[in-house]
């Protein structure tokens, strides 16, 4: 039994200590917005924020998350950056199948939280851990730039 902090709430979970946060979220807490793509930190579909930094929840044992703040896609509309990113994602109709997009949005908002004027190279660096099999990459890039502009008051 461990207690973890998810989206600002303390949650008691039963999972064995080696269980990745991804499966605690999805199977135990019923929060299915965070996705499984590879289980090996190779695709980014499972990205959440740990104390604000993007991490791959498929490779983060729940024991290592105790004492830290986990933020998931379900809470993103409650933060100014998350909201700006989601709004821009909608305005650009970014998703196709949409399966990778929770992870893309988590990576993009972590980027914009610390860098309000990301260059193309910054975007490549922050986003190249997130695979999109539907190939929405150019729309992701455009949406990040638009979200940055709106956060900088130039929407």
């Amino acid at each position: 039994m461990a207690t973890i902090n998810v989206n600002g709430r303390s949650m008691k979970v039963d999972a064995s200590p080696d269980t990745p946060v991804l499966w605690v979220l999805r199977d135990e807490l019923g929060m299915t917005g965070t996705k499984f793509g590879c289980g090996m930190a190779l695709c980014g579909a499972c990205t959440v924020h740990l104390d604000g930094a993007p991490v791959r929840s498929c490779s983060l044992p729940v024991s290592a998350a105790v004492g830290h703040r986990i933020t998931t896609i379900e809470a993103m509309s409650g933060t100014p950056v998350g909201k700006a990113v989601q709004t821009s994602w909608v305005a650009n109709d970014v998703p196709q199948c949409g399966y990778c997009q929770s992870g893309q949005i988590m990576s993009a908002s972590a980027l914009l939280a610390k860098n309000r004027k990301p260059s193309d190279a910054d975007i490549d660096q922050a986003m190249s851990g997130n695979i999109c099999r539907c190939g929405t990459y150019n729309q992701i890039r455009a949406a990040i730039k638009q979200a940055a502009a709106s956060l900088n008051g130039r929407a």
Partner: peptide
Amino acid sequence: DTPPKVNGSAKYGID
């Protein structure tokens, strides 16, 4: 189908 696909609420088979 865009709105549910940006906030984690879209339901896929795996969900």
